[in-house]
């Protein structure tokens, strides 16, 4: 319970800071308008994107039984971008929701491609799978960049490639609320997703529809990533670091930990965004950059820190 109080307090402070900090002056004549049209949406967007990516990371890690994998290492965002690019080139007038659907389908296909590839990767060395994912995502990303380059869409592409929240305004981020619904869906199937982490044989022998569950999980991941890429851009490492920290602390029972993973993911991304607004005041550093720097340090700690001492019962 202490963990929850601390997390709630930290989140409250972050939200207050995010609502209060910015280049504009809230006490001015347009203060109320600024608050509603920019600060609120920006804060909500960071929370939702962070929560979504952290949950997506947890699902992917359970699905492939490897803690070092995250959506950014399964070709998911690159596939979403490929879908978005295709829509922009073929049907430029498509409304946001339509583009989002295409991006989700493309993200799902790309992630499924990674899973097919993963079936052939030996599991003894856990570092192999993320490396393969890195290469896979790199190849997809280069293809997307090449198309973007030859079609003069590099500027659009770069808006997806680096996650930042300065452009978030009322009316341009609402798609991210999908993540709240997906989190609820994930909660409903949390036990099934946790069973994936026992491995295919154990899960199937417990009577789980393994493929159906895997597919549901991947659809959730694909839609979350597509929504984040479309609205704010890629935020690397969130799906890797946050679930790992929560898992170390509280274990892998997704039903019990889902709220904490979401809160920690939202809080981490919001903190990165607030920091990014403060460090070079009044200029901004993208939240994705801040998180990547902090995340690299945390990742090294995760790799080398000894496991938590077993808790004795009673």
């Amino acid at each position: 319970m202490r963990g929850w109080t601390a997390a709630g307090l930290a989140l409250g402070v972050l939200v207050a800071a995010s609502l209060g900090i910015g280049a504009g002056d809230l006490s001015g004549a347009d203060g109320g308008q600024l608050f509603l049209a920019s600060r609120m949406p920006r804060t909500a967007a960071a929370l939702l994107a962070g929560a979504g990516l952290a949950l997506a990371g947890a699902v992917v890690q359970m699905a492939v039984q490897n803690r070092l994998v995250e959506p950014g290492l399964t070709g998911t965002p690159e596939s979403a971008m490929a879908g978005l690019l295709a829509v922009t080139l073929i049907a430029p007038g498509t409304p946001l929701l339509g583009r989002m659907i295409v991006a989700s389908v493309a993200a799902l296909a790309g992630t499924a491609g990674f899973l097919l590839l993963a079936r052939h990767i030996p599991r003894e060395d856990p570092i192999l799978l993320p490396l393969v994912g890195l290469v896979y995502g790199g190849i997809l990303g280069s293809a997307v960049t090449w198309v973007g380059w030859t079609t003069d869409l590099m500027q659009l592409l770069s808006s997806w490639q680096l996650g930042e929240f300065s452009g978030v305004l009322q009316g341009r981020y609402e798609l991210l609320w999908l993540i709240a619904g997906l989190a609820a869906l994930l909660y409903a199937i949390a036990d099934r997703i946790t069973m994936l982490s026992l491995g295919e044989d154990r899960a199937r022998s417990l009577g789980l529809d393994y493929r159906g569950t895997l597919l549901s999980g991947l659809v959730v991941v694909a839609v979350i990533v597509a929504a984040v890429v479309v609205t704010v851009g890629v935020l690397p490492f969130v799906g890797l670091i946050v679930p790992n920290l929560v898992s170390r602390w509280r274990g892998d029972n997704l039903r019990a930990n889902l709220p904490m993973i979401a809160a920690a993911g939202g809080g981490a991304v919001l903190a990165s965004d607030v920091l990014g607004r403060v460090i070079r005041w009044p200029y901004e550093i993208p939240a994705g950059t801040i998180f990547a720097v902090a995340g690299a340090v945390l990742f090294l700690w995760l790799l080398y820190a000894p496991g938590k001492a077993p808790r004795r019962h009673g």
């Binding site: 599991r123 946790t194 026992l198 044989d201 274990g251 892998d252």
Partner: peptide, 27 residues
Amino acid sequence: MLALLPQVTPALPRLTVADLVAFGRWP
């Protein structure tokens, strides 16, 4: 009808013993 115990897998989830045993009732 039947329960299967596969061979030991290298990657184990951080589930408690209580959680794991409870999954036995899933079917």
